[in-house]
Nucleic acid binder design. Sequence first.
DNA 1: CCGGATGACGAACGGCTGCTCGTTCGCCAT
DNA 2: ATGGCGAACGAGCAGCCGTTCGTCATCCGG
Lengths: 205, 205
Amino acid sequence: MPRPTNGVRTSDAIREAAVELFYEHGYEATSLREVAAKVGIRVGSLYNHISGKDELLSSIMIGIMDDLLAALRSALREHEDDPVAALRACVDTHIRFHAQRAREVFIGNSELRALPAKERRRVVAKRDQYEKLIRGVIEGLAEQGEAEVVDARLQTYAIVAIGTHVASWYKPRGGMSLEAIVRTYTEMILRQVGVSPAATAATAS
Amino acid sequence: MPRPTNGVRTSDAIREAAVELFYEHGYEATSLREVAAKVGIRVGSLYNHISGKDELLSSIMIGIMDDLLAALRSALREHEDDPVAALRACVDTHIRFHAQRAREVFIGNSELRALPAKERRRVVAKRDQYEKLIRGVIEGLAEQGEAEVVDARLQTYAIVAIGTHVASWYKPRGGMSLEAIVRTYTEMILRQVGVSPAATAATAS
DNA sequence: CCGGATGACGAACGGCTGCTCGTTCGCCAT
DNA sequence: ATGGCGAACGAGCAGCCGTTCGTCATCCGG
């Protein structure tokens, strides 16, 4: 049945099927035949939409990193003059994104090895940019004397690590609401950088 | 050349080669021929020492979880009556272990998917036990009024996540000493649970 | 109403996979 | 001295892998 005229475009369906399967079994353990089966076509037909298995992974990983960067940039733009609010926005955006797009983020974090060197460098560069943004906020907070930061790099890593971890266990219908998770972790991070409770309460909206 | 009489037993060499390769390329992307080549034997000879690829992964993962549990239990045994010192010991042991045995720990965290269901359940059970130990310490701290814990489960997750993350970037010859990393993260975690600086200083040895 | 573009099909490819097995050979206890 | 045993060998198996390609049904602009 050529030209299915389904509601969804085949290339999107392929991408979604790949995300699902890469998340569940890993990139190396997923065959293109499985991807094709999930879409409802044969393996040869995939090549009308993708140029190879590598490129399928690359596009997923680069896409998720671009979205992640865009989300953080957009969130920070609203709090350029308030460092505490900016850090709040960082943690909020970071955890929310990692929970809501857990599967893609998980792939982005775990399949770096499988990427060809050239694409890997691109993804790593984006990740470094992302971390640099968070670190900038933390350093700004320290410079203005609003926080006692022990080590900005390790502090950034802690935030990143918590997001990655959330992506590995959060389920929308799980016992804990996303709002509660975000609220708790935000408070924990603010304590960690030594923001006074007064400042915390003052900037809470 | 049978009976090589090298200093190392062949089974240990196989295990070490497998850890190296699983860490670098992932379990699925590593062939037994690569493992054998690293050991310096042919693929068929592997089967004199292992019963299959599955079992090779299982033994690595179960081994690392047993060691991790043992390390934490041993550390906690020395601080049964001092909750703050116990939490310090948790963070210290956790991060130190994750840095020093980064490759095995990384495999333990990332290759759960590849494990047969039965073995996977065993490993997950051990991980749950481990998290329960940490969580117990945190809850004890809260009960004694020595800390203001927002959420013991998320607090435990944060500690776990930081260790996992350290395992992914720590290099012994890197810019930051293990001692500094452990010291910084310990302080950050103590702040996070709201332990007063006085209590922190008092129990520092 | 027709001709080109689109995209699914299915067979085929070379290569690699985990694994098996009969064979050989040196070490060690007897 | 010799027999058994541990262990390496290497050929080979069936099966799956990513990828290619010629074929053909359908759709759409003219």
